[in-house]
Amino acid sequence: MKHTISVYVENKPGVLARIAGLFRRRGFNIHSLSVAPTENAAYSHMTIVVDLEDKPLEQVVKQLHKLINVIKIHDYLPEEVVERELALIKVNASSEVRAEVIEIANIFRAKIIDVSRNYLTLEVTGTEDKISAIIALLKPYGIKDLVRTGKVAVARGQATE
């Protein structure tokens, strides 16, 4: 089972290593992790998707809390959170299929951010499911390159109030 946690940390050297090391040592699996500074440069925000196979989420959160550089942790239920992921997909789009690829991009509201003779590069944002869906549709055309950011998440306004 996958669970998304949102972690605010001090923006200091080695913090990522501490968190990654903790996950490895305690036998927790990271499915995806994204990290960037917040509006306050002293802090960073991490969205960590944890793969909970046999370790309870409670232990993950409690052990994270013990790290001195961790300021706060939110562990949201799926309905309390808005999640997005971004993917850049370079897909084969030679003249005979180009129109079809553009049509798929339009349906998914993907942006075309690079064009060459044989390839189109698409930028698509959405939930994990949406990204997976467009990938599945583009696969038959030949995906040359694919990069996903991993999930970022923020609590819904309602959950914060």
Binding site: P13, G14, A17, R18, G21, L22, R25, I68
Partner: peptide, 16 residues
């Protein structure tokens, strides 16, 4: 040494 001891310290510092 800060890397080596990461899993066995409560906290650590590399002074810069």
């Amino acid at each position: 040494i800060t890397g080596i001891t990461l899993p066995i310290v409560k906290h650590s510092y590399l002074v810069t």
